[in-house]
Design a protein around this nucleic acid. Structure first.
Lengths: 216, 216
DNA sequence: CGCTGATGTATCGGTCTGATACATCGGAAC
DNA sequence: GTTCCGATGTATCAGACCGATACATCAGCG
């Protein structure tokens, strides 16, 4: 996982460890807390030994104030083999590709895949989340009596998140299938207007089937 | 983390490993994939060595068809020290208490804490998510030009999830502060409408004017 | 009558985290 | 001016956790 992420980031431009970690954190902010140095540096070493990246002391951009410099920054650069490796890792979708962390990393580099591969991953992720959702639903209907109010609330919140993500994935899949443009803002993030269905009172959440597909 | 979860589940009733794992999976369905046996059994061993739980072959409920029985099921039971340990672990909130996994486990056993402790944890979690949210917001405004459409979409989805969880936490906190009852369905799970503005900024935890209180 | 899948316990290699260590640098405090 | 602090930067280590695997029992099913 980390390997793929590092390779992907270095694909854009050479970088040193510290910056790599910062980019990693902001890139995956949502789906994963962060990779720590405790795994980053060993991974870099491994990648270097495997010939996927090369070390390069001295940054061309910043003229490297050497000073007394015991330990200077080390810039890592992707090799040709590294690019191949990256393509392989990104394209091959294992089961963990659909797990939270794995999906986040793959999605972050989606533009380097073709439409068919993107669809495959999106659908795999959707299947995964739907499974999770069904599990939650089952717990909520089957043992609503046995459970704690807090536990119930936790399940409910989880279910909500699942339904939301499935919706999100559906939109992404639809966009991917019909239109070519991966245009943002098509898929609704925080587009506020659209005061649809203003009546809150009746709600009637009795029916558990989410036939109410909303506008999407 | 696993230790706390195991102790918590055994607090309800004795169980064997397999069932423990199933309960764990459904309990934390939302916030965490699952704990695998690879960590569960070592943890059970550790807990047993520490005197927090005791093994007990032979299930009183099911009369244990012994048959040739090389390896029978092993039922684990909480000891008095185990209960103490559980209370300690649950009450003391470290930084990882507010991370996804840790929060899920703590929340699942919320009913064993008092109101003040619950509030402390809920607020800590909210702070944590707000930080994450700000990070996402920053990425989205600061470098909207530099980023890939897919990366952007990922950030946006993450931001949405953060805002949603903050709202959820706000409701939980409000409920916790004013009313005593941890009544479910007060906090909206999957009530679809809600054309409310997404800005939650100034806290102002939404006057409990949501008249749709319903009977639990 | 063997197949498969659920139940059940257990280990192993590998990945990742959190804490820690050390060193340099710019800037703010005083 | 110097001292302290936080950001930058590289690195390691113990321990938690995962995924795969192994093995064994048992129910149902064709």
């Amino acid at each position: 996982m980390l390997e793929l992420a590092v390779l992907g980031l270095l694909h854009e431009s050479p970088m040193h460890g510290y910056e790599l970690r910062k980019r990693l954190t902001s890139l995956l902010g949502a789906f994963r807390a962060a990779f720590s140095y405790g795994s980053l540096y060993p991974t870099l070493k491994r990648l270097k030994d495997a010939g996927y990246i090369t070390e390069d002391a001295g940054d061309p951009d910043r003229p490297v104030p050497p000073l007394t410099g015991k330990r200077g920054r080390i810039v890592y650069k992707l090799t040709a083999e590294g690019k191949e490796r990256f393509a392989d890792l990104l394209a091959q979708a294992g089961p963990e590709t659909y797990e939270d962390s794995g999906f986040g990393v793959h999605f972050a580099f989606f533009s380097r895949l073709d439409q068919a591969q993107r669809l495959r991953i999106l659908e795999g992720r959707r299947r995964r989340i739907e499974e999770r959702r069904e599990g939650l639903r089952e717990t909520l209907t089957r043992s609503v009596e046995r459970l704690d109010a807090y536990t119930l609330e936790l399940q409910r919140h989880g279910l909500d998140a699942c339904e939301r993500e499935v919706r999100w994935l559906n939109e992404l899949i639809a966009t991917e299938q019909s239109g070519k443009p991966p245009s943002v803002t098509t898929v609704g993030g925080f587009v506020p207007p659209e005061p649809q269905a203003p009546s809150v009172e009746e709600a009637s959440p009795a029916e558990p089937d989410d036939s109410r597909k909303e506008e999407n």
